[in-house]
Amino acid sequence: MARFEIYVTYKKGIFDPPGATAERALQNLGYTEVSSVKIGKYIQLEVADGTPEARVREMCDKLLANPVIEDYRIQSAEEA
């Protein structure tokens, strides 16, 4: 069993309403050093040993992320 971890975030320039709300809330709580909060998704994937990363990328492009609005980063669990 191999493991991949996938981080999905909005592309630069795409407004992230939950992130912006968290940012304002943190500032209201006195954490004035906060200048940006981005909220994304974290996905854990278990696949058969030897599954190439290219295949995981395909899964991201097709289903797990929407390339129109989102970027993603794949990390194999060994690196994590």
Binding site: P17, P18, N66, V68
Partner: peptide, 11 residues
């Protein structure tokens, strides 16, 4: 159709 539909701006 092109584009995407994001969460409403006001949440």
């Amino acid at each position: 159709l092109p584009g995407a539909l994001l969460r409403n701006r006001g949440l």
